[in-house]
Amino acid sequence: MIKRIFDWLKQPLGLIAVGIAFLSLFSLAAYGLYTTQQSPEQPIQFPHQTHIAFGIQCLYCHPGASSGPAAGLPSQAKCWGCHNQIAKTQTSALLAPLKDAVLSGTPIQWVPVAQVPDFVQFNHRAHIAAGKNCEDCHGDMSKVTIAQNPQVFNMGWCLNCHVESAGDDHEKLVKLSDCGTCHY
């Protein structure tokens, strides 16, 4: 029985069938990986590059980054501080969700893009204090609309930078490569 299947697979038609099966499995896996790396759907197609072009600092909208664990996503009150003085806000279709949110008092449900798993305890403050800039991890936001991750946030990537920044300082290396620094 098995010999018959092998014989059939060895003929040209069988080889083509194997090739097609392999290709379709491979492309399915590749597509699966691709979908995990896409930016999620946002309530507003927020153009980062426009805001940065106006000279707005990252910390203006994400102030938590310099003082605590979470950088924070701005509430509509912060958006409205500037946008209620901009005439285009009233007419633009892109900004209609913002107007609705402010008028109805319902918060905008931003979808976080740069996320780590629950078992990782990340603190922005320590990284900013160590001299890291936002773009070192989050990429150049002046080139994207909705935030995108320039790389996969995995442990090897984190640890590479930790070991590098520790350098020859043994005490610092112990602290930065300790499991309990991020996992608890």
Binding site: F119, V174, D178, G180, H183, Y184
Partner: peptide
């Protein structure tokens, strides 16, 4: 479950 060199605690790394 490893020993934290930095804090001298017994860690449990859930992942």
């Amino acid at each position: 479950t490893v020993h934290s060199q930095a804090e001298q605690l017994n860690l449990q790394v859930y992942n």
